Simulated assay, not measured.
Amino acid sequence: MTGVAVLIDVPAFRESLPAAVAAAAERLLHDGAVARPEAVGGGARSVVTDGGDRFEPWVGVVDRALTGDCDCPAGAGDDGLCAHAVAVALAAFEDGIRFSAAGIPHGDDGDDEPDRADYRRAVESLGPRQLTELVVDQALRDRGFAARLLGRAGLLGGPPPTGLADAVRDASNVTGGGRWEIADVELAGLRLVAETEIVTVWPATVEMLDLVEEAIEVWDELAGILVDAWEVRRTDPEDVTEPLLAAHRALCERLELDSAEIESRIGRLADRCDFVPVT
């Protein structure tokens, strides 16, 4: 757990920065070198491009102090924040990202630390070319990974892909005609999850939220089939329900909808769903 949110005094934070660090951070922001930050580990993380190099700083509150964690060779400044971390902090403040009173750099809470440590050692043992080839090969095989990769690098271009809209249409028709099996229902649900995970890598929009709500409604009809088919199904309804609802909650937060609109949307969904526990 990352604790309760804290209020950051942004003007005071700016005044506390060394002049050189502040100037470098402002230059990075002015040049568009900072990708849109994401809330991670009770703080914020982003990709920063500086002089042809890419860094992934995290910034958050640790031991009651605003702290940066960056992989740049320059290291931290006098206050523990390099220019890359400062730029991410300023971008996060601008986006309204809320900071926790007990941040965890890069969201590493230690729940799977043994696995993470093994993977980190493996990555650190590879040369840049080997690591690049592995990442590119994985991106070519996995569209979800490819979207996350481009998002982290700040290289997402154009509108979100249409895969989720296609998946919603196909799921709504999966039992509509001809012969179908429980496996068809399961595959339709898993495709909804996969396409939702891809599309939500893009900046959040109301249209995206509307589409995820449509996906939830379509899945509700199919979830009832899986509930009745408990003896033969291989996929539990929750395996689709939970990630779809999590995406809906995350989009509402990213869009910073007020509580009244969120309640209205949840109410409409709840009225239309019998098997998806919308709350």
Rank of each mutant, 00 (worst) to 15 (best):
M1G: 13
G3T: 09
V6W: 09
A12Y: 08
F13V: 12
E15F: 04
E15L: 09
A19I: 09
A19N: 02
A24R: 10
A24Q: 15
A25S: 07
L28N: 05
G32R: 10
V34C: 01
A39R: 11
S46E: 02
V48I: 05
D53T: 07
V61S: 05
G68F: 00
D69W: 04
C70P: 03
D71W: 01
C72I: 00
P73V: 03
D79V: 15
L81W: 09
A85L: 02
A85Q: 00
A87T: 01
A87F: 03
A89L: 12
L90Y: 05
L90Q: 05
A91I: 10
A92I: 01
F93H: 10
I104F: 03
I104K: 07
D112M: 14
D112S: 14
A117C: 08
Y119N: 14
R121F: 10
A122P: 07
A122I: 12
E124W: 08
S125M: 11
G127K: 02
G127P: 01
P128A: 04
T132R: 15
V136G: 01
D137W: 12
Q138H: 14
R143I: 06
G144T: 07
L149Q: 04
L156Q: 08
R169E: 13
A171D: 04
V174E: 09
G176C: 04
R179I: 13
A183L: 14
V185I: 08
L187G: 08
L187A: 15
G189F: 01
L192E: 08
A194I: 09
E195G: 09
T196K: 02
M208I: 03
E214M: 12
E214T: 06
V218W: 02
V218F: 03
A229D: 10
W230G: 02
V232R: 12
R234P: 10
R234L: 13
T241R: 02
P243M: 05
A247T: 00
H248T: 04
A250E: 15
E256D: 12
I262R: 15
I266V: 15
G267V: 08
D271V: 10
D271I: 03
D271L: 11
R272C: 03
D274P: 04
F275V: 07
V276N: 00
P277I: 03
